[in-house]
Design a protein around this nucleic acid. Sequence first.
DNA 1: ACCTGAACACCGTTCAAGT
DNA 2: ACCTGAACACCGTTCAAGT
Lengths: 204, 204
Amino acid sequence: MKKISTPYHHGNLRQALLEIAVKLIRERGADALTIREVARRAGVTHTAPYRHFKDKASLLAAVAREGFEMMVKETKDQFSRTTQDALARLKVCGIAYIEFAIHNPARYRVMFGTGRPHGKNSALRKASEASFGLLLECIKECQKEGTVRPGEPMEMALAAWSIVHGFSMLFIDNQIREKGLFAADRESMMDVVVDHLYAGFKPN
Amino acid sequence: MKKISTPYHHGNLRQALLEIAVKLIRERGADALTIREVARRAGVTHTAPYRHFKDKASLLAAVAREGFEMMVKETKDQFSRTTQDALARLKVCGIAYIEFAIHNPARYRVMFGTGRPHGKNSALRKASEASFGLLLECIKECQKEGTVRPGEPMEMALAAWSIVHGFSMLFIDNQIREKGLFAADRESMMDVVVDHLYAGFKPN
DNA sequence: ACCTGAACACCGTTCAAGT
DNA sequence: ACCTGAACACCGTTCAAGT
């Protein structure tokens, strides 16, 4: 009888651990994420993950980093299906951001929920800066186009980020449905919020 | 020799535990909050807290609830120092909200960071609804006054909440300073965000 | 290189017992 | 009523050892 080869050699354990981690958070909450449980589900010893991640925090950081990269990719994909109109792209930024959060609440919470800044982890930092950069560029282009009023783009990007982030957080934390805020569907809530956002950007 | 009386009888243990919990989160992060450590600092056995809180989650819920109550109180205090002008009160809502978050980041994170809704805990739920209610009332009054455009107040309150919550979260998570977003001081950042918010509320 | 097994110092929670 | 001490089933992390 041939030996059944063990599944996670040759470098795919790292990716497997990441996927299991996300699934675990999604299914059972952030508290249920333990290195030992991830290892168990991957079929390896509880110390094996330490070959790929320094500690639990850096496993979470890797999950977060992937998240920012996914978000950027999805936004760019939407861009390519959009007119050259910079204002349209700016709206896509907002919508894509919120949609990512709503469709990946577990991962989104990891991306922002740590309470710890990204400071030291440069890969994570770069990924999150790329995401913010997309928004910033859109705003600058809109200003050139004349579809967004003049003003410090950094400040405007901050206001824009605040509102989409705030809405996303409240939404995935159930604060919105819980308060009976809306019988309305997600789509129209998103539109309300994003429209409000751009109302503040209109040129005079 | 008289026995030294033990400090936490007669019902003040509960309050002591809450204060220690907040201090612990503030000083060493949310991960450092353990029931055992709280008990240790209070000078009681690690099982004593269970007389006052069902489990760790309900200790955290109590910390969160106190937070919402503090926020409402501080906002009302500011109201009493303000003109009858409803628009001025609306701005106070935004500023007081952000200031609370900035001055109590640890507690603020507990108030929103659980990932778990407040659903079951009715005291917590009521406290957070009171906070939202303040904002909602202000918007309605402004509409009567004509200083905020007509529209579903619930939707407008949601947009307002999103932006102050988003800004607060980004700020206390260090996402803002980390990205080199502003050399500017807090005050002016807050003003930018809040001004942007109210720009979207202006009547035509 | 990658993985294991034992070990250490912790957790949250329960429960019978003490005053 | 309020608190204790032992116990249980977990953690994260380290380290010497195996292939």
